[in-house]
Computed example of a mutant assay.
Amino acid sequence: MTDAVIVAARRTPTGKRNGVLSGVHPADLSAHVLEDLVKTAGVDPALVEDVIWGTVSQTGEQTGDIARTAALSAGFPETVTGVTVDRQCGSSQQAVHFAAAGIIAGQYDIVIAGGVESMSRVPMGSSSQGANPYGERFMARYDGVKPNQGIGAEMIGEQWGFTRTQVDELAIESHARAAAATDSGAFESQIAPVETEHGRISADEGIRRGGTVEGLAKLSTVFKEDGIVTAGNSSQISDGSAALLMMSDAKAKELGLTPIARVHTAVLAGSDPVIMLTGPIPATQKALARSGLSVDDIGVFEVNEAFATVPLAWQHEIGADWAKVNPNGGAIAMGHPLGGSGARLMTTMVHHMQANGIRYGLQTMCEGGGQANATILELL
């Protein structure tokens, strides 16, 4: 059977809201990582058959099928098509799934999967422009409750009994791990530096050093007065883009390229859309069952830190070794540029697997609507 393999994975640094990348149009930010990706791999962009691009807020500067605009902005030939995907926070992880399925089915030989979100320029929620996306039948089914991710994070805290100290401790550890990875040079092989009005940006902007649990304890909760979720233990609003060059194993061999990893297993799971953020638990269970692997077979996990309660609940139910979970930090430290986050996590994971000789890695993300993707990669 044909394997879908990853031959290169690159990302921009992540910028803070209204930070160092805020002056870059999202199509140009996408174009930068696309151009860098094919250059890194040494592949003629004319060979790319499609660009599958995740973007959540498809309005304003991120509308008009930004995948196609990005490919043309990157200088790719006009023969290279593009399609934009929205599975909320998992959009670019879903792009990888679509790319892998197309390759295995024989519809593609070479495709790029990734995504972008400039949350500075296209604010979260702006695509609905104040409209109610939930019709009468949805509201009737869920007793008139409109899903809210922050409230969902608080509901997880209540259901699993997490304390404010636990979520703040996770946040501090996320920043510490990301800072250590930055200092060790672990991100250098994956980051495509961006030239901006602020200079050459080559590091993630949101990482904070020297924080303490005592310091985070001073922050007010955001969604519930007596709750545990604060800005300090939630993912950062960010700008960023990431992309993976994927192809069939036969095409990689024909081009003389050495694949980094193959897509071993790719699944989806649905869960309660009100609590919304628990989908990674059944998605991980489904991925492990379908792959025939156990949790102990997995050498690294990337579980998106949308809120600290999400990986805490996931770890409680899955039982993974915490040292293997987000070893280089997560979205609390490095940011969460919605449509680009799935590809960012996968880029970080595949480079970590390569650098450390880890055979299997598993990535999962919670997504709006109560969904989750889970992907297992195998190092080649």
Rank of each mutant, 00 (worst) to 15 (best):
S238W: 03
R177K: 15
S184N: 10
I156S: 05
Q371T: 14
T221C: 01
T347C: 07
L362R: 14
I110M: 06
C366R: 11
T230D: 08
L29R: 01
R208H: 02
P280N: 09
S22F: 05
A179E: 13
G357P: 10
I66M: 02
V274N: 15
T196V: 09
H264C: 06
P193E: 12
G299I: 15
T81V: 10
I228H: 00
I376D: 03
R68E: 04
V51I: 15
D36M: 07
G357M: 03
D50G: 00
A181Y: 09
E305G: 13
W322R: 12
E61V: 04
L380N: 15
E378N: 01
T212F: 00
V122F: 08
E205S: 02
R10D: 08
D143T: 13
E378A: 07
W53H: 10
L34I: 14
E205A: 02
R10A: 08
D44C: 12
V80S: 07
A231Y: 09
L377W: 12
D239Q: 06
A343F: 00
R68F: 05
V310D: 05
P337G: 09
G161L: 08
K286I: 10
D50H: 01
D3V: 00
G106R: 04
P327S: 12
I358Y: 00
E214Y: 10
K224Y: 12
L338R: 04
V122S: 06
S22I: 01
R137Q: 13
A289G: 06
A374I: 13
A308Y: 12
M247G: 03
R121A: 15
V111Q: 06
D86K: 06
Q363H: 15
R87L: 10
V222M: 14
S234W: 01
G23Y: 08
V263M: 06
